[in-house]
Amino acid sequence: MHASQFVASPVTRRIDVRGLCKTFQLAGTAIEAVRDVSFSVRRGEFVALLGPSGSGKSTVLNMIATLVKPTSGQILIDGTPVVPGQATPNVGYVFQRDTLFPWRTVADNIGYGLQLAGVPVAERKERIDACLMQAGLQDFGNAYPSALSGGMRQRAALMRTLVVEPQVLLMDEPFGALDTHTKIDMHDVLLRIWEREQQTVLFVTHDLGEALTLADRIILFSARPGRIKESFEVDFARPRNAVKIRETPRYAELFQLIWHSLGEEFIKGRSP
């Protein structure tokens, strides 16, 4: 990669990752989790990071989210380097397990980011109500998270991130803990939101079907140490329907193509 290429089009490039490496120290041994990862994501693009568990895809996402400090390499969002430990403006993050605050009602959870930003109560309420409606949680605003099902909780967690209208969404296997049907419901919810808001999304998953349903492009990670193995364009028309898309021949074709490559990594990751 040439340096000038790297700064060439800051307008269309939202996320730029260059030569990212991460080595963890675990009980005195160095474990190389991520090796020399470079990619970029265009404005409004939906990219899935796919790979077997332990392939470092979540680590890459967490470095972009500033939760993990890279060993070396560079991360730019809108041309500005991110600072580890410091939230990047306009970047939203959705966790693998929902981290709704159990001591706040669903509405107060969703409104948390607005409260931090000092948004006036009346406007806050309006935006919370819109989010509750969108997530189908209009009857649960005053409930505490413990009263909600897993799918409802993850919808609320998604809304807590979306209410502040981030332009970049980082999602770490957000639907990993849900059953298949709830998961596909969530895919439709996310597709509707994304088609309207056109955020730039980086979505980590180990579920190929999920990646195909949602993404414009799939970046496939190899088994540890995590590197980018291949990249696939997913050319289904939009708007997509999470159920119908799985019935198309093109889906089967792409699935088979990527599955072959992913399968190799599963096997590699399995051997000690």
């Binding site: 500033t66 966790f95 397990r97 931090l116 930003a117």
Partner: peptide
């Protein structure tokens, strides 16, 4: 739970918040 702390931080909370 550090997950709560991280969630708050990524939503823009300061240390005091």
């Amino acid at each position: 739970d550090e997950g709560f702390v991280n969630a708050a931080r990524l939503l823009g909370a300061s240390e005091w918040q």
